[in-house]
Amino acid sequence: MHCFSIIEGTKEALERLQMDYVDVIFAHRPDPTIPMEEVVRAFNWVIEKGWAFYWGTSEWSAREIEEAFHVASKLNLIPPAAEQCEHHMFHRERPEKEYEPLYRKYDYGTTVFSGLAEGILTGKYNDGIPKDSRFGREPEHDEERASLASEEGQAKIKKVRELAVFAEKELNCKVSHLALAWLVIKPHTSTIILGASKPEQILDNLKALDVLPKLTPTVLEKIEEILATKPSSVVSCSAFA
């Protein structure tokens, strides 16, 4: 990801979108062979051209994000505004542990993808893999199918079953609504990307908003007891401070 790639990639993306600008443009996975200064300067240039209002990171480590902030501060350039990361009930180490110092220091926000763990948290794989599901109909998901069949995968399914019972009996909702609402209430969740393939799925996912008032401290504690996935401690990312 060098200066030319960022600038030309932005131009080509805007042409495909048939738009003059976007609100946020994300740098997906940094190239460790390119100096961070070059990356930050390129996105600063994109913003000054009016092609984007902000730039963000995607799947960057906390150390890389901290370095971008350090470079931006040193050169009086625009730092990243948000991180696009995987975050769900079974994937918590990076968004809840590694990034915690960034939240405190920069009030950094996250744009979450895979909030339903590729469909696992909808409960549709609780009794096997349906033929009409993504894992069932697309051959490139052999690895995911094998993962679900593993001991670790089956342990996740067991937890989803428990969460589904809890969601239905205690909260009067689907487990997918609970999983999304659980993400929404995280203090640094800025946006959740809903990977729906049908319009009705979007409407169903939005029912998670009705669950938010029900997520009391007691309810959240019960969820943590079922999951047992909460990160143990916070790491520091102040190498460039």
Rank of each mutant, 00 (worst) to 15 (best):
I129E: 11
R63K: 10
A82K: 04
P130Q: 09
G115C: 03
W51T: 08
T122A: 01
A117K: 06
G119F: 02
V112M: 02
P79C: 12
R134L: 05
E64I: 00
C85F: 05
N126E: 06
P130T: 07
G109V: 11
A72C: 10
I120D: 01
T111P: 03
H87I: 05
A82T: 15
I120A: 03
P101R: 10
N126W: 00
M89S: 09
I120Y: 02
D107Y: 11
T111Q: 04
K124E: 07
N76W: 07
C85G: 09
E64C: 02
K124T: 06
H91C: 07
A68E: 05
S61H: 04
R92K: 13
H70A: 15
R63E: 10
H87K: 13
S133D: 07
W55A: 02
Q84A: 05
H70N: 10
Q84D: 04
K97S: 15
S133H: 06
I78S: 08
L77W: 14
T110Q: 14
A72L: 10
Y103H: 13
G115R: 00
H70Q: 12
G119A: 04
L116Y: 00
G50Y: 12
E66K: 08
L77R: 07
D107L: 09
R134T: 06
G115L: 03
H91Y: 12
K97L: 05
T57Y: 04
A72V: 09
E100M: 13
E96S: 03
Q84M: 08
W60C: 03
E67C: 07
E64G: 02
S73W: 11
A82C: 15
N76F: 09
S58E: 10
K74T: 14
P130I: 07
A68G: 08
W60G: 01
K49W: 08
K105Y: 08
L75D: 10
I78W: 08
G128C: 05
G119W: 01
E67S: 00
G50V: 12
E64Q: 14
Y103I: 11
K131P: 00
G50S: 12
S133C: 07
E66L: 01
M89T: 04
R63P: 00
R92F: 09
A82E: 10
I129F: 08
R92E: 05
A72Y: 11
A68R: 07
Y108Q: 13
K124P: 00
E59L: 07
T110H: 10
G123R: 01
E86A: 11
K131D: 14
G119I: 03
